[in-house]
Each structure stands twice: as structure tokens, then as C-alpha cells.
Amino acid sequence: MGTAQILFWSLTALALISAIMVLVSKNPVYSVLWLIVVFFAISGHYILLNAQFLAIVNLIVYAGAIMVLFLFVIMLMNLNTETEPQKSIWMKFFGVVAGGLLLSFFISFVISSADLKGKSAQLKEGEIGLIKTLGKALFNDYVIPFEIASILFLSAMVGAVVIGKKD
């Protein structure tokens, strides 16, 4: 095993364990904090694939901004085990079954995909995640979807302001 494999397996273990902890934690604040750990582990994977830009943007946007807002809301509502409605054991059981089925569906879909047959991830030499490549692809090949997505965000923001207005 080289350094890359050791890093890959430890990051994967970290990501999976903290993802399970997100679900298992009784205190919602702990769940949010574990979710931040998941984002860090996934950013580590991006760095292994030489996609530094994606890695840091993942941290800035998800771990830095969105999770702060999550934490914000949870802290304001002051949720805890006593006030939160407890689900019955059967609900939890069927939740796990449904989630597992969805996961196996996705995995079988990825494995049988023709594009991925016989290919492995490009470690270190891949250039697709670097900011130059990504910028050129976004603003040349995908410029219309990109602009439409930004208009979608703008309309969401305007909608939030309109709903949030008092009168």
C-alpha cells in the first residue's frame, strides 16, 4: 500500500464513521458537528484526486457557510432529547431498510454503468478539478446551464426576501 491508499482508506473510514454518528447522535448539535467532519473527509478525497479547488470550495460553502446556518437554527430552537418527538422502533427499522435499498440501488447503478467499466480514479495526475480547467469548462462548454443555475439562485434569494418581509 502506498501513501495514497493509506490516506484513502483512513479518510473513507472517517467519512463513514462520522456519517453514522450524524444519524446516531441524540443531540442535534452533535449531529451537525459530525456532518462537518464528513465534509472534511470528503474534501480530503478531493485533494487525493488533485481537485484542490473543489476541496476548498466544498469546505467554504458546505462546512463554512451552510453548516453554520444549520447550527444557527438548531441552537436557536434549542432542540434536545426531551422535547424532540421520539419515533417508534418500527419506524426506525423500516427507515433503515428503505435507506439500505436505496443505497444498493445506487451502488448497482454505478457498478453497471458502461462509462465506468475498467476505469479507475486519476490520483494526483488528474487535472479536471484544478481551477483553470474547471473555469474554462464552466464558461465555455456549460455557460448556459451555469447562467441558468445562477438565475435560479437569484430568484430563490428574491423569494426569501419577499417572504421574509414584514408587511
Partner: peptide, 13 residues
């Protein structure tokens, strides 16, 4: 090669 963004990421943490 993402120096400034790294600073930004850490600041947002």
C-alpha cells in the same frame, strides 16, 4: 495553487 481560497476556508471555519 489555491492559497487565497485556503485562507478563506479557514476563516469561515
Amino acid at each position: 495553487n489555491i492559497g487565497i481560497l485556503y485562507v478563506f476556508g479557514v476563516v469561515s471555519m
